[in-house]
């Protein structure tokens, strides 16, 4: 059984004038340990697909099964718990909490666990070490560069050891050098830590780094 199974996934948005079909009968299987990229023009439904897979949005029809759980049937609280345990989310604009240090930002997902303070510290230090930011633990986001902020964001995504990392245009707000660092880091998560990674991107170069490329256009997924 695949790690991720999407079946007949359909999502539409109702505007005042019309109903817009964003995803149309999407089927997709992702095996554990795969590194995929998803491309497509703006408004093609890439982020919507990512949000559905993260349990942040509900489809109009179809099912999403990840690691044996059909998340489309879960209520809000169970979905939140499932997300905390299964998904690591990397945002385009990092979305770090400005009032927290790098350490405290990475620790956030662990506040939802029963880990002790020492255990949390140990895990956060490991995650920040993976992204090579051990020396920036006590820095606030405003004291970090864009690339460093995104690395903190990735450390936050992996700290709870999720089964899957969903990255929504992780290099979209970075210069070329920082983008390269992030792509290398994602690749390392896949190759060294055997993480399943799905990256949405506009960047052809970034998409080429993935081992499997997909293209979404007008709600239809081309694999």
């Amino acid at each position: 059984m695949a790690l991720v199974e999407l079946r007949d996934l359909t999502k539409r948005y109702q505007t005042e004038a019309e109903i817009i079909s964003v995803l149309e009968d999407v089927d997709l299987n992702i095996e554990a340990g795969e590194y995929l990229s998803l491309m497509g023009p703006s408004g093609s439904g890439k982020s919507t697909l990512l949000n559905l897979m993260a349990g942040l949005d509900q489809p109009d029809s179809g099912t999403i099964t990840i690691d044996g759980s059909e998340i489309t049937s879960l209520g809000p609280n169970r979905l939140a718990d499932w997300r905390a345990n299964h998904i690591g989310f990397v945002f385009q604009f990092y979305n770090l909490l400005p009032v927290l240090t790098a350490f405290q930002n990475v620790e956030l997902p662990l506040l939802l666990t029963n880990l002790s303070k020492d255990e949390r510290r140990e895990r956060v230090e490991v995650a920040l070490n993976v992204v090579n930011l051990s020396d920036r633990m006590e820095h606030y986001p405003r004291q970090l560069s864009g690339g460093q902020e995104q690395r903190v964001g990735i450390a936050r995504a992996i700290v709870s050891d999720p089964v899957m990392i969903l990255a929504d245009e992780p290099t979209g707000d970075l210069d070329a050098a920082s983008a390269e660092e992030i792509l290398t880091l994602l690749e390392r998560l896949h190759s060294e830590f055997n993480k399943t990674v799905l990256m949405v991107t506009h960047d052809q170069h970034a998409a080429e780094r993935a081992h499997r490329k997909m293209y979404l256009e007008k709600g239809v997924l081309h694999q």
């Binding site: 993260a54 942040l56 809000p76 609280n77 939140a80 718990d81 499932w82 997300r83 905390a84 345990n85 989310f89 945002f91 979305n95 909490l97 956030l108 997902p109 939802l112 936050r156």
Partner: peptide, 13 residues
């Protein structure tokens, strides 16, 4: 935005 991020991380309503 921060509330949305915390929800994404798994914080319950």
């Amino acid at each position: 935005n921060e509330v949305a991020v915390l929800k994404t991380l798994g914080f319950r309503d």
